[in-house]
């Protein structure tokens, strides 16, 4: 009676089975598709990934994957070096700006990537002159795209620790501002910083809109290209990428739990 709004075991299972089927059937049907060959089922398409004879067909895929990993790394640098210190600064020194910062950080949800790309095209003409047309330059735009996700993870951690007390203690013991951030705040925020970085990796690995319309190669644009010559390998890489992102998110789930247990202690 105490928690009478909690559903019964039967209700839980009925919903879980129906929705679970809707979510899992496409994934399983896709997995089945990757094992097909002319006569029946085999690992032929999975084995083909390492086949030197097909290397030229799959080359865009490896280029795209490499580019996406570089993009993920540069985006993490933007999150850790530019976004996170700004958040610490705002929370410590400009608490009144916190709402403004939050508003800005959530803007990329309101402004769709397909709209942003219309205005990014002229911006990237200038970026191309300054830094060249390498795929890594996309990371500037990706740093914006990941703002809603990365800032939420970091802010949750900032809210869970006593930022001001830690800073005050470190400063009164003679630490420099750099020392405060590097040796006191960063270790305390490592959960949020890790979660913010991992979720950025997931966003970057799945990004297609900006890369395709700004004519740069990443994993997703490569998938679309390879799909035209070998649909199986595109599907295999899609499943692997989804599985990889799922693992990243599982890790974030664990990291997030560390943050919340710390909050309960405080």
């Amino acid at each position: 009676m105490k928690t009478s709004f909690v559903p019964g075991r039967a209700t839980r299972w009925i919903i879980a089975v129906i929705v679970g089927a809707f979510v899992l059937i496409p994934l399983l049907a896709t997995l089945e598709y990757t094992f097909r060959d002319r006569t029946g089922h085999s690992f032929a398409h999975w084995a083909a990934i390492a086949d030197p004879a097909k290397a030229s067909v799959y080359k865009p895929l490896w280029t795209g994957l490499t580019n996406s990993l570089i993009l993920a790394a540069v985006t993490i640098v933007i999150v850790l070096v530019l976004v996170a210190p700004t958040m610490i600064l705002v929370n410590l020194r400009f608490p009144k700006l916190r709402r403004v910062f939050e508003f800005v950080a959530l803007l990329p949800i309101t402004i769709p990537a397909i709209v942003l790309v219309v205005g990014l095209a002229p911006v990237y003409r200038v970026v191309g002159h300054l830094f060249g047309t390498g795929a890594w330059t996309l990371a500037f735009a990706y740093g914006i795209l990941v703002l809603p996700f990365s800032t939420r993870a970091i802010q949750a951690n900032i809210d869970a620790i006593s930022l001001t007390t830690l800073t005050e203690a470190a400063r009164s013991l003679g630490a420099s501002w750099f020392g405060v951030i590097w040796r006191v705040l960063a270790p305390n925020l490592r959960g949020g910083l890790l979660a913010g970085s991992l979720i950025s990796v997931a966003v970057v690995l799945g990004e297609y809109t900006l890369a395709s319309l700004l004519a740069r190669q990443n994993l997703q644009t490569a998938l679309v290209i390879v799909n035209q010559s070998d649909a199986w390998v595109a599907v295999i890489f899609s499943l692997l990428a989804l599985a990889f992102c799922f693992l990243l998110l599982l890790v974030i789930g664990r990291v997030g739990r560390v943050g919340s247990s710390r909050k309960e202690q405080a």
Partner: peptide
């Protein structure tokens, strides 16, 4: 999180392979 935010192109391939 994965299916809601990071699927994009990959979900299209999943549905082509499924349906």
């Amino acid at each position: 999180s994965v299916l809601a935010q990071f699927g994009g192109v990959m979900l299209a391939f999943v549905f082509i392979a499924t349906m």
